[in-house]
Design a protein around this nucleic acid. Structure first.
Length: 814
DNA sequence: ACCTACCGGGG
DNA sequence: GTGTACGGTAGGT
């Protein structure tokens, strides 16, 4: 018997001699890629029934044969479990192979003495990781021996696997790749157009393959004879580099499927899996590309589904994401000219090779930057990185619960059937409370918020489907504000989900404490804290998500009802103690301190906290010397979710003002920020007014440079398919007429000039416009004034005052 | 107002 | 692979 120590990274399984064998691919402590097999794990599922013995004796004889497989039961046992808040006896049914589970399940579901069947759709490799408690990226010690099995890496057959500590694997070998394809009809046609370049980027490794020669001194460029050879190089490079993670940007949806299509044309087998299996592309439902033994991380997928929430960027293109996260952009080349350069051959191709390599580099850097975050997610969810990065929030919650369930002896509820999902989609419920602010400029504001409001409510009030309206309690109802909904949650026994979320919150508090104490910043702790917060905050949404196993609309409703109850309680308590409440949204409250001190406010917070149950806590978010709330567009009320605050250290916090968006000109954006700064920092409305009038005058005097009046709007579809021709579409049409292709995704920059009647006729490209050749009145009325008029209204200055019309001008029209 | 269809990313 | 995306919104009714 030998011993092997390794970090598992990926799990799959294979049928050998009619038995399922688990394959764990990973990295040994000495840095080699290895495969550990485990033959000692059997597929199973659960049956609930009032007549377990009858099910047991009948099911053991069951054998279903079809043209593909023979499915039969290899054993059963009666076990004690919990289901939906109750102790149950369940029949655990083992089958010969994983594929037999759904077949047996379908058959016995029809027996009338079977109540329900559970956990029949948990993928086998995932089931293994959960039941054996194996977490990718953490160390294990294996006893067993090396065996000879067809594989690209050594195979070790395990008899016993045990966790060894919690260290994470050192930085994995990452290989990024990117392709450029021939295209001239502004359509992606993998059947027709070849791949012309292929770039790789890894640690101490950069290479571009292309199949047209030109003179170059760039050593990273390598010429091959044909596209087919380029695809062979793709396989070879992966084989030699031995990446543990292969990464691309939208490689699920573009690079891998494209390469697969081209490989099929040349009858090249893409057997890049470590077990010689082929690249597997799933086109049904969400597209994804899988390689056995190598984690394929499509950075785009992770950013789009999970990480992007915390980013400023509105577009998840490689260019904008890379710019925000690593401060680097794509190389600027004219892609429309690429195919022409390719046809003509020669030196011009080189810049596209550099462009190609640079994209691979950006992808590599992004993957490295995001990896700590992804690994923390892996360690909490317990599934391989290529799986967790493709999950949405609800799936993350679900797989976290499925991993926790065995610890609590819980049997998982089933996913809803199609009809149920339809019904669930219909059910809606009341959300959070938002206080209507009184428009005005205020000084000396204290802001408080509930720490993780919804997660702490779920934990503190034991909110779950299994504890809802129990038979043993009922004296304390959920404080619904409709006065009729009658729910309560058990006080005697903790529910599964509230326990799990409570553990998450406490874990996060410990990590936060560690972060607070540490001398130098530990990025891993920060990433872990981030992931725990993300997960905890997703539970409430999960309760109301139609596809959830632990769906409980009553729990979702009760969570927001408690949320509204507590925030109202804080509001009335604050008012009773003489504070003016300026604003409140969901879990936050803004107090006007006025004559009261910060100490008074903190005392208030402490007294609130004394009355809060469980993990609930009101926190001091910060003090703001000034803040402004404005009116709605129709001037009928104070605008919700639209305000600006300035902090003690002079940082502006702007929420909901539409001009922070991209398709506004700089002149309007800058003025808005300036005006807010002057009003909040210096409290000088007159100065803000003077500056605004100055900007308007400068516009009229044509003193504003053209770059500040450029408006950028994206072309989102084919030009011909636009019904309404906005200014950016009009420009695109003119470009097309000149023979310049404008593909969807292009951002059109334009300036509105005075020549023409409709805005679309007046729009010109910036390079066609000379300094001062813009329509001042357009910019004043459609950009500058809308950006600041709501702010000035609060200060008692009308729109007319801004644009310099005489007071009372309106009167003449009446 | 409500519903459906399509888009994103990639070249 | 013990499977069948998703969330937003433009455009139509």
């Amino acid at each position: 018997m030998a011993t092997l120590r390794f970090f598992p990274l990926d799990a799959t399984y294979r049928i050998t001699d009619g038995k399922a064998v688990i394959y764990l691919f990973g990295r040994s402590f000495d840095g080699q890629t290895v495969c550990v097999t485990d033959e000692n794990f059997r597929p199973y599922f659960y049956v609930l029934s009032g007549e377990l013995d009858r099910v047991q004796s009948k099911i053991e004889l069951l054998k279903v044969e079809n043209e593909r497989i023979s499915a039969f039961v290899t054993g059963t046992e009666i076990v004690k479990r919990r289901y939906n808040g109750k102790e149950v006896r369940a029949l655990k049914v083992y089958t010969n192979i994983p594929g037999a589970v759904p077949i047996i399940k379908d058959t016995i579901s029809q027996w009338d003495f079977v109540d329900s069947v559970h956990e029949y759709d948990i993928l086998f490799a995932r089931r293994y990781l959960i039941d054996r408690g194996i977490v990718p990226f953490t160390p294990y010690e294996v006893e067993g021996e090396f065996v000879s099995v067809k594989s690209k890496v050594p195979v070790f057959r395990a008899e016993r696997i045990e966790q060894r500590g919690e260290d994470i694997a050192e930085e994995p070998r990452i290989l990024a790749f990117d392709i450029e394809t021939y295209y001239n009809e502004r359509e992606i046609l993998p059947d027709k157009n070849p791949i012309i370049m292929l770039a790789f980027y890894g640690k101490d490794f950069r290479r571009v393959f292309t199949w047209k020669r030109f003179r170059t001194s760039d050593e990273s460029i390598e010429f091959v004879e044909s596209e087919a050879e380029l695809i062979e190089k793709f396989k070879e490079t992966i084989e030699h580099f031995k990446p543990e993670i292969i990464t691309g940007y939208f490689s699920d949806g573009f690079d891998f499927p494209y390469i697969e299509t081209r490989a099929r044309k040349y009858k090249i087998s893409l057997d890049i899996g470590l077990d010689y299996s082929e690249l597997k592309i799933n086109r049904k439902g969400g597209i994804d590309a899988k390689i056995a033994g190598i984690n394929h991380v499509d950075v785009f997928r992770y950013v789009q589904r999970i990480f992007g929430r915390g980013l400023e960027t509105e577009s998840y293109s490689l260019n904008s994401v890379a710019y925000e996260l690593i401060g680097e952009k794509k190389l600027e080349v004219n892609l429309d000219e690429m195919s022409k350069a390719w046809d003509e051959g020669g030196q011009k191709i080189e810049e596209y090779c550099r462009y190609n390599l640079h994209d691979a580099k950006l992808t590599y850097e992004l993957c490295r930057k995001l990896l700590p975050n992804m690994v923390e997610l892996v360690k909490i969810i317990g599934l391989p990185v290529d799986e967790v990065i493709r999950m949405g929030f609800s799936q993350l919650v679900e797989w976290y619960l499925l991993r926790q369930a065995p610890r609590f002896n819980e049997i998982a509820p089933n996913r809803p059937e199609h009809g149920d999902m339809g019904k669930r989609r219909e059910e809606s419920f009341k959300g959070a409370f938002v206080f209507e602010p009184k428009p005005g400029l205020y000084k000396n504001i204290a802001v408080f918020d509930f720490r993780s409001l919804y997660p702490s409510i779920i934990s503190s009030h034991n909110i779950s489907g299994g504890t809802l309206n129990c038979k043993c309690c009922g004296d304390e109802k959920v404080p619904f504000d409709d006065g009729k909904t009658n729910y309560w949650f058990c006080k005697r026994e903790r529910g599964f989900l509230p326990t799990v979320i409570g553990d998450l919150i406490e874990h996060r508090v410990r990590i936060k404490e560690m972060i607070r104490k540490q001398e130098q910043q530990d990025m891993l702790l920060a990433a872990r804290e981030n992931v725990l917060k993300l997960l905890a905050n997703s539970f409430y949404g999960y309760y109301g998500f139609f596809g959830a196993r632990w769906y409980s609309i009553e729990s979702a409703q009760s969570t927001t009802a408690y949320g509204r109850y507590y925030i109202h309680k804080v509001i009335s308590k604050a008012e009773k103690e003489g504070f003016t409440v300026l604003y409140s949204d969901t879990d936050s409250i803004f107090l006007l301190l006025d004559k009261k001190t910060k100490e008074d406010a903190e005392k208030f917070m402490e007294s609130v906290n004394l009355e809060l149950p469980g993990l609930m806590e009101l926190e001091y978010e910060g003090h703001y010397p000034a803040g402004i709330f404005v009116q709605t567009k129709d001037n009928t009320a104070g605008a919700k979710k639209k305000y600006a605050l300035i902090s003690d250290n002079g940082i502006l916090k702007i929420r909901g003002f539409e001009t922070v968006r991209r398709n506004w000109s700089l002149v309007a954006k800058e003025l808005q920020e300036n005006v807010l700064k002057i009003i909040l920092k210096e409290g000088d409305a007159e100065k803000a007014l003077v500056i605004t009038k100055g900007t308007i005058k400068d516009l009229r005097d044509k003193k504003i440079p053209v770059e500040k009046v450029i408006i950028k709007t994206q072309i989102t579809k084919e030009i011909g398919s636009y019904e309404t021709v906005g200014p950016h579409v009009a420009i695109a049409k003119r470009l097309e007429a000149k023979g310049v292709a404008v593909a969807p995704g292009t951002i059109i920059s334009y300036v509105v000039t005075e020549i023409g009647s409709k805005v679309r006729d007046k729009a010109k490209l910036p390079e066609e416009v000379r300094e001062g050749e813009y329509d001042a009145e357009y910019y004043i009325n459609n950009q500058v004034v809308p950006a600041v008029e709501k702010i000035f209204e609060v200060l008692g200055h009308s729109k007319d005052e801004l644009v310099g019309k005489e007071q009372g001008t309106l009167g003449r029209f009446f």
